[in-house]
Write a protein that binds this DNA or RNA. Structure first.
Lengths: 231, 231
DNA sequence: CTTGACTCCGTACTGCGGTACGTAGCGTAC
DNA sequence: GTACGCTACGTACCGCAGTACGGAGTCAAG
């Protein structure tokens, strides 16, 4: 049957029944019509939608933003130019989030590498480091706060290129994830897929911002060996 | 003067006066003793501490976590490794978020380039892009692509029956959820309960619409083994 | 010595994202 | 056929991280 009861739908989406009802009230998902007798029926599309909402929340979107995002999808008859405009606005938004997170990433990495990882806590540099960084942030804030970089991304599409590397030294999926993480933070990298089984990485990047050598360097920073594949 | 008033301290730390007071109530910073007459005095250490709190918040720590972190710093027995571990956990978290955001970014770009600014947008890949991530438990799960079999079922009173199956091949609760979803979309199934612990499924269905074989087939479609239990 | 800005402290309120609770009404199992 | 559990719906409440407000006290300048 296509019709799940609310509790089944909730279970399938790994949320609480109350959460489903809450999303209905918020207008995030459609409320199935109440039959004159019996229970309301939910379809798998709704379940998908709820999973999407949760996932999007986890990456930092608020319910309001998610609603807008979803409106882009379920608005086929709306003025397409408008949809496009909103999509571009969202893209800017996403890019800003990524930059913000990359900033955080760098900050955390600095902290971690500055910390010896053992010894008494009074020698732990984190408290000092965090506040020291604040000074740095002060200086660099105008750069990241001021969105001058909006211009460098005019229509949101740049000449992207996919590069493949053969990788030696991975011994589990975790290693693959590590490499993905290393690659993802190279400026100019849009997407990094690393397969442990196939021993290779495939990287979508802007060659002007990130050279092949940069990518290889990032991989080798993790202690792996990278050989560029000829295309 | 060495003792700052609350508003000066707040200004120095770039926060609201109320925020200082709030942190005091929370126990994040010490409350300077109220003199018998006059105002309380804040020192520069407190200001530093507040700055630290704000900075740590920005990197994604909650006030509760920050409190623990600060407690560690004043605990002579605490080990630096502990602090480091927390930072690494946060970093992992941030890395995962960045990767997911990049998927959304790709999806939005696809959407934007698919829409020339005119015409209908019927298809949205955002949903797929984000939700595709959490399908890692079972790759064999058929994607939501095959929703062709929409059968019109009118709501009559049908004789429902419960059937039990023993199931082999589940290795987590997620598998159980997958099977529930698979069963739920078999026409004629009213309710599906799958227990990972007990290795069995219990299905409430209309035997005229969904035979036991149909149910078994649905389960096996997910790569599991189903044996009907005798009643 | 008055005025205006600041402080102290408690309590209340905000927005977000849910959870819980209570009272009906369904519906399946024993 | 009744007990139990689920559903529908509305309303109330929760934790988080603050923010606002109100009344009384304090201080420093004019």
């Amino acid at each position: 049957m296509q019709g799940l009861t609310i509790s089944l739908a909730a279970k399938a989406a790994s949320v609480n029944v109350e959460t489903i009802r809450f999303y209905e009230r918020r207008g995030l998902i459609a409320r199935p019509p109440t039959p004159s007798q019996g229970y309301r029926e939910y379809d798998l599309e709704t379940v998908e939608r709820v999973r999407f909402i949760r996932q999007a929340q986890e990456i930092g979107f608020s319910l309001r933003e998610i609603q807008e995002l979803l409106a882009l999808c379920t608005d086929p008859l709306a003025d397409c130019a408008d949809v496009r405009t909103r999509a571009i606005a969202k893209l800017d938004n996403v890019n800003a989030k990524i930059r913000q997170l990359q900033h955080v990433q760098t900050a955390l990495e600095t902290l971690i590498s500055a910390c010896p990882g053992k010894g008494a806590v009074e020698y732990c540099s984190i408290l000092g480091e965090v506040t020291a960084q604040e000074m740095d942030c002060r200086k660099s804030q105008p750069a990241s706060g001021n969105r001058g970089s909006k211009q460098e991304r005019k229509q949101g599409i740049e000449p992207m290129k996919t590069k493949e590397f053969s990788i030696d030294g991975m011994h589990c999926d975790g290693c693959a994830n590590t490499i993905e993480a290393l690659l993802s933070r190279v400026p100019g990298v849009r997407k990094a897929e690393v397969s442990f089984g196939e021993k290779r990485a495939r990287v979508l990047h802007d060659p002007n911002a990130a050279s092949d050598a940069d990518l290889a360097a990032a991989i080798e920073k993790g202690g792996f060996k990278a050989k560029p594949n000829e295309e």
